[in-house]
Design a binder for these strands. Structure first.
Lengths: 124, 124
DNA sequence: TGTTTATTTGTGTCATCATGCAACTATTAT
DNA sequence: ATAATAGTTGCATGATGACACAAATAAACA
């Protein structure tokens, strides 16, 4: 039996209150901070490449840092709705919430584009 | 006459070397850090909303921090290719590089989706 | 029961970074 | 040339955050 351990989720999860400064689609700072750390970005990439849920100790093997630190990074990504954690016995399986993640970034891109002035002409 | 002051640009600008850990489309950590700071995110949103280039002192009026700090934030965003800086006399006009920004985030979204397993079924 | 394994969490340390203020550079005006 | 304005940069400080290690929690197994 899989037990969801994503109880007290941030508002991020429910899609409400996303946005910064009145422009809908701009993610909040904490979400972006979660993915901006280089180690977390690598962990995320690792899980994306794995294409299947992985347990903490397995993930930790790929990184030259203490497994407790990996656990903390995973928790940060989970709290932002980027990862899903499922407990199965002693182990906790982490997986990527693909649709959620891509929709946030696609929304960001759209938010910026929708404000893009018609005559966009950059350098060179 | 407008003078480009975006000389020593990061590789970010030229579209090369973007990517993390072998998955093309995942932006690097520094780029994400640039947009993950809450003040920088607000500055970016401010410029997006303005829909036209603005000078440093004008931007700084909207933020309760020293204008030198705003200048530093703008430089960080510029160095990552997110903003364009154009000097005109004493003033420096900053504007959003819309296409660049949105393409990065859209690429990120696509990179994640392209790795998305067929049976994507998250918790409700 | 106690023991082992998997993960989380408490705590201290060190590095990074946002901030304010002052000094410096650059451009325009008197 | 001097002064005034716009912006950048040097420097000190305080806050945040990544990290290691140890202790605590949780689950399976002896």
């Amino acid at each position: 039996m899989m037990t969801q351990i994503n109880k007290h989720l941030k508002k991020a999860q429910k899609g409400e209150d996303r946005g910064c400064c009145g422009i809908p689609g701009i993610p909040d700072s904490r979400f972006l901070k979660a993915v901006s750390d280089s180690t977390r970005l690598r962990i995320l990439a690792h899980l994306v490449e794995a294409k299947k849920p992985q347990i903490v100790s397995e993930i930790a093997k790929s990184f030259p840092i203490d497994f407790s630190v990996v656990s903390r990074h995973l928790a940060i990504l989970r709290n932002e709705g980027i990862l899903l954690a499922e407990k199965q016995g002693k182990e906790v399986y982490y997986s990527v919430r693909y649709e959620f993640l891509s929709s946030i970034f696609r929304g960001f891109a759209s938010a910026i584009e929708s404000c893009c002035p018609p005559k966009e002409r950059e350098n060179e």
